[in-house]
Design a binder for these strands. Sequence first.
DNA 1: TGTTAATATGTCATATCTGATATATTAACA
DNA 2: TGTTAATATATCAGATATGACATATTAACA
Lengths: 103, 103
Amino acid sequence: MDTAKIKRLESAGWQVGSASDFLDLSEEETAFIDLKLALSKRLKELRTAQQISQKELAKNIKSSQSRVAKMEACDPSVSLDLIIKTLFVLGATNQDIATAIIR
Amino acid sequence: MDTAKIKRLESAGWQVGSASDFLDLSEEETAFIDLKLALSKRLKELRTAQQISQKELAKNIKSSQSRVAKMEACDPSVSLDLIIKTLFVLGATNQDIATAIIR
DNA sequence: TGTTAATATGTCATATCTGATATATTAACA
DNA sequence: TGTTAATATATCAGATATGACATATTAACA
């Protein structure tokens, strides 16, 4: 199993609040993943609330359905840049993003 | 003059509040740059408050002085990922980051 | 069950970001 | 003025993220 897959599983694990030690990450690294996770979660919330398919959103951001799926799965191959840009396309405000981060 | 340089100048321009139309960016693109700018500004604030040189910070994040300088200049070649990771190394909390974004 | 739309996962060539390095500029002080 | 530390800027080879595509899985319904 490759690192990407492990990280993806780890992310899923954190998402539901379980503890795990496949990887030993520094405090800064986990903080970063948590932040990314919170935003990818918000991304999915906004998309589903707007009843848009991943394919449709992909078109709006000039990307592909698979990349949207990866964003929502918080795949390690997606950057925070892409997630944030997509949030703005979904109509998120700075306040939305800030709230998603602290919540 | 290349795009990177123009964008850098643009960023500096926005930072001091001037209007410009070298580039015509969409609302989402300007929102993204504004957010990045706010965070790079906060990064510099945290570093200077801690009286750390760019060189020292670079060592802490295993990068180089020049990259730190580019982060603080909000150079288009730096990712949001790198800026956020660095903020965490500087001891920023999610609340700090959220505040920097909405302020 | 089959059909269909939505979503998930794997892979890859290309684009973009990376740390490193060199060098320029700036600021503070003798 | 010179010297020094800090910061800024330019460039580049290697690393990582990208959209695209193929294919698998899931869910809802006939």
